[in-house]
């Protein structure tokens, strides 16, 4: 069974607005990187945020581990988001006032994981992603590629089943973009995770295992 799927999914931003996805049914494959692609305005990021339980579909359901999540109360969806989903944003979205280590352990705080346990795992993840030496730095003191690796570490801190990435290489040069994609492919393959990337970049689409065109 797929960890993540959508059933009969549709979404409208306003009641009389254009309907997106038109009753989409799709199963995301575990251990693979799926690229969400399509022309501008087709709802790549919107679908990503629906999968992340931050938007509620107008119709249909997001199914995680066999359970429909879209109709759950906001607090329950937040808890699922903290425990089961990892997010990587386009601009890394690290707190500029906190250290890299503090940024990485932030989701574990919302999941109720002990700080000491989270710090240990964060240090290990940062090492694995090649930014271990930057743990005590502030986001302003590291490069864009390093920031995005930190964002990936943050997404993995609670060992989620699903990692959702919104244009994760959008602000990176080709070398750094390739590095981040290597990391995302690696975490999908080795961790049996479902990785979904919203992108319009042909290079990223080319690197994905599967492509969902909207």
């Amino acid at each position: 069974m797929s960890a993540l799927s959508v059933q009969n999914l549709a979404f409208r931003y306003t009641p009389d607005g254009e309907e997106l996805f038109g009753g989409l049914n799709y199963e995301f494959t575990e251990g693979k990187v799926t690229a969400l692609t399509g022309a501008s305005g087709r709802g790549k990021s919107t679908l990503l945020y629906i999968l992340g339980l931050m938007l509620t579909p107008t119709r249909g359901e997001v199914v995680l581990h066999g359970l429909g999540q879209s109709a759950s109360p906001d607090a329950a969806r937040s808890r699922v988001r903290a425990a089961e989903l990892g997010f990587v944003f386009q601009d890394a979205a690290l707190d500029p006032s906190r250290s890299i280590l503090d940024s990485v352990i932030e989701p574990s705080m919302y999941a109720g994981i002990k700080r000491a346990t989270a710090i240990k795992r964060a240090a290990q993840l940062l090492e694995e992603l090649g930014v271990g030496a930057r743990a005590e730095h502030k986001p302003g003191q590291i490069s864009g590629g390093q920031a995005q690796r930190v964002a990936v570490a943050r997404a993995l801190i609670n060992n989620p089943a699903v990692v959702l990435a919104d244009e994760p290489t959008g602000n990176l040069d080709p070398a750094n973009a390739a590095g981040v994609l290597d990391v995302l492919s690696s975490i999908a393959g080795t961790g049996k995770r479902t990785v979904v990337i919203a992108t319009h970049d042909p290079y990223v689409i080319g690197r994905a295992d599967e492509v969902l065109a909207l």
């Binding site: 937040s78 808890r79 989903l85």
Partner: peptide, 16 residues
């Protein structure tokens, strides 16, 4: 507001 949005995306509840 971006900081608060990030917190919500990472799993903070409204009560948090």
């Amino acid at each position: 507001r971006k900081d608060l949005g990030r917190r919500r995306a990472l799993g903070a509840t409204r009560a948090n």
